[in-house]
Amino acid sequence: MLNYILKRILMLIPVLIGVSIIVFLIMRVFSPDPAPIVLGQHATQLATEAWRQANGLNDPVYLQYFNFITGALTGDLGTSYYTKMPVSKEIFARFPATIELALVAIVLASFFGILIGVISAVKKNSIFDNIGMLIALIGVSMPIFWLGILLIILFSGTLHWLPSNGRIDPMLQPVAVTGFYMIDSLIAGDMDAFTDTLQHLVLPATALAMYSMAIITRMTRSSMLDTLQQDYIRTARAKGISEGRVIRKHALRNGLIPIVTVIGLLLGSLLGGAVLTETVFSWPGIGAYTVTCILKSDFPVVQGVVLLIATIFVMVNLIVDVIYAFLDPRIKYSKVKG
């Protein structure tokens, strides 16, 4: 198992090299020249040239890439063209917001998705099943930004129950330790900040969770329906154990194995930044920020973010596979060759 994990981590290297080359080229081929955007339309030829030289944009592309990748290996992702801040700082300032939102969303989505999915399967064709499937249908078909706006209008605008903007009341902002406000506020022992953080999370997390929840609900239902038809479930019933135990102990463990993969993939994509959700809720995360950087041709930031997201995506998948092997004894990764 350990061998397998090591191998998978080594396999990360070609993936990251490939991904970095692709972003690097795409940015340089398709993005507008950053110099006039950074310096303004009226910058002199001389100033533009000097700026290009200073930022290494006059070097041949392979050299630019080489510089980028050697920098990245030592943890130096360059500086933003605009803020002149190190890219790593820019990312750290925003990524925790994205992770916090994504984790809360995936927890919500998994909890409700599995719950509704399992009950729908066990009570197939009942009213509960029909309502559950309707919710799932709405979940997959409703655009997130639209759902977000509806939630804001209802719970923030009309009812004034929940905030719709940002991560926390600026007055309550805790000292940044981890960048996760739920944790930072607890470290600071500030319960008001903690509650405020949770309240700010409710609406964006709900909007973001809806789609994933719908997917998880559907997959859980069909996986459980399939599992409940299996011969070993009949064997379990034949043992004379209660139906509840048959479902909890025999069906659930088997039925949820494929769901782990689904949740992992969904989490991976949520961590990539939920651009629309972040925009609608003015969430200071990485997704909306990256889009602005792409539009402004801020090459170092975009490259850094993409590299980071690719790494996280691969790591999440690795963790999913490890959990998978743990849940399903039939899988022996040590025997799978690299």
Partner: peptide, 9 residues
Amino acid sequence: EPMTSLNPV
């Protein structure tokens, strides 16, 4: 069905 009648996990 002996192959499928036992719980695989």
